[in-house]
Design a protein around this nucleic acid. Structure first.
Lengths: 193, 193, 193, 193
DNA sequence: CATGAATGAGGCTTCATTCAT
DNA sequence: GATGAATGAAGCCTCATTCAT
């Protein structure tokens, strides 16, 4: 559908050139229509990008939830692994979206600022609650305070891997993920130092 | 000096609005001059930003080296701590520069791509070599393979903290740094699990 | 009927924003249809407005004739009064049409120029002949030359009142009409100075 | 000066095609510059026309005052004559301005509405006070109530002649002015009916 | 050093219009 | 009768840039 194609092209152009560099002309060209046609679907550039951003954030949250759901019944270490690898997979497959997300976090346009904050909060809360429960289920011997610490540690590592997607090539990244998993194993007490 | 003010304004505008959104007019306004005056110092917009980017990367490398130099003689854990906290300090103090750096990494303009890759390589190589030597000096019992692993693990954590600068407020960030340091302590074998 | 609604909306939009500001979109919105639907009734914007203008002029002439017919048998002063008040009434009730008429007179679009000139001539001729006869019938003692003068004088006054519709509020306008009638009375010799 | 030329061209284009039909392109073409250059002098189309309208109203008031000043010492009938003929002269010489003025009165753009009302009030008040004094000076036997009536009557006639500038050709207009003056003479009691 | 004045190119957007449904 | 979807042309405006002063 044209409207969705426009949305995708908008995200792609934004990821390459940011808001002011993502021109209606180039978006239209990418879709294969004329610039004027965009205005049949979107009131203006701003509303197009607002819609694009909201879609983006919604998709991202959905994907992460999907990943967790898929490994819901496995041991906690597998869950950490799935989250790490799932995150990498998702962002590798959605480079444009990822770049847009990063750009939104670093220099949020005024209009999306609030939505973005809410998204981050929702995401954090969801991940925290999910992991808390999963740790408790898999390792009942770990008390909540300790669980909270573990989750924070995992988030540092997940964020590290996330950022390194942009820094390393595939092979290097794999090694980094291995190290990340190793760290989690250690932190879970599975490895004698 | 006017030329430096222009450079700073360029970085600031770029950090807020990216290349196409950073207009000569707004840069001039921020400096307190007229757009035409910028052309006395720079041939055109592109050369202005090339200069700005190169400055930026040079400064960043210099800062990191400085941090390491300041704690050069301390034990390795203190060095990890200094690098983590130094990184956070630097980026908190240079928000605009950090945003530009992130933007360059995610969507590098064609003209800066090569320079950026070289910078990242230089930076990685320098950090790798430095840490390798410092670990050997402080913990001679750790063999090089293990050291390499440790450095990779630290880089995941450093990158995680780096990205979390953008995600968390000051207090939350402090906790994350504490967890990061805790992890490094564990990895260095200093803590019985 | 839709076609008439379109005509009315066209006149209204034209009265507010003139030809270039009267957009097919706004006309359609005022009617409650989509712009494309207008083209079922009218070939294009120009033909729509040509029709609208012609309707407008025809209506105006018809109204004036009606006014005169209604007081046809009364004395000449009553006829002057009826014309003055009828003109004011008509234009107060048809503000949009009046504004369009004024705009056509001051800056006639090329396509309507001829039609407009003919209308004005027809109107003038009709009024002149009508008044000439009515004066002769009511005041046979006035010779034709004098009648012609009286008619010219009345036309100055009628035009003055017409323009003042746009300048004064209702109360002020009433006073002006009274003065206008007073003048006509004097000119008809009915008042000793 | 370029800025003044722009103002004149703006008035001219507005008089021909109204606000939406007066394009920056055509204004620029009339001045002999490129559209972009207008923006060096005016922030946007709206501010250009605001300035143009304000100039227009100021000039008109100034001209009328000048006319009165020039015949200040003559008898009242000569003053009426000067005002009538001066008004006609001015508007014949400034057709564009006159058309704009008429258009502003009939369909005032929101932004100028207030300014316009103030102008009309100022003009009315000035003319009323001026004529009141001049009548008293020239015809001390006329009491103020009568003077007020006379002024109202004159204003009907002046407005009539003003509107007829747009309706009649030069020769016809001259006759209408003669009739107007005749009426004023009668009203001043100078002619036995 | 600095800027007033100017402009070609291109940005976003609206316009009148078409045409298949 | 009506409209969803599309578009070429044109509208307003900003951009980077130039150049004389």
């Amino acid at each position: 559908m044209t409207k969705e194609k426009i949305l995708r092209a908008a995200i792609n152009q934004y990821s390459l050139y940011s808001y002011h560099g993502a021109t209606m002309r180039n978006i239209a060209k990418e879709v294969g229509i004329k610039p004027a046609s965009i205005y049949f679907f979107y009131k203006n550039k701003e509303s197009l990008f607002l819609d694009a951003f909201q879609n983006l954030l919604k998709d991202h949250l959905g994907q992460m939830k999907q990943i967790l759901e898929d490994v819901h019944d496995e041991p906690i270490l597998s869950i950490f692994e799935a989250l790490l690898k799932g995150t990498v997979n998702y962002h590798k497959k959605h480079e444009a979206e990822t770049n847009v997300y990063i750009s939104l976090v670093t220099s949020p346009p005024e209009e999306i600022h609030q939505t973005l904050l809410e998204h981050i909060q929702t995401f954090d809360k969801w991940m925290n609650e999910s992991l808390l429960e999963l740790i408790r289920r898999d390792k009942p011997e770990i008390d909540e305070a300790h669980s909270q610490k573990l989750i924070k540690q995992f988030s540092v590592i997940l964020d590290g891997i996330f950022w390194e997607i942009k820094l390393y090539n595939e092979q290097e990244l794999k090694q980094q993920i291995d190290e990340a998993l190793y760290i989690m194993k250690v932190l879970l007490g599975g490895i004698e130092e």
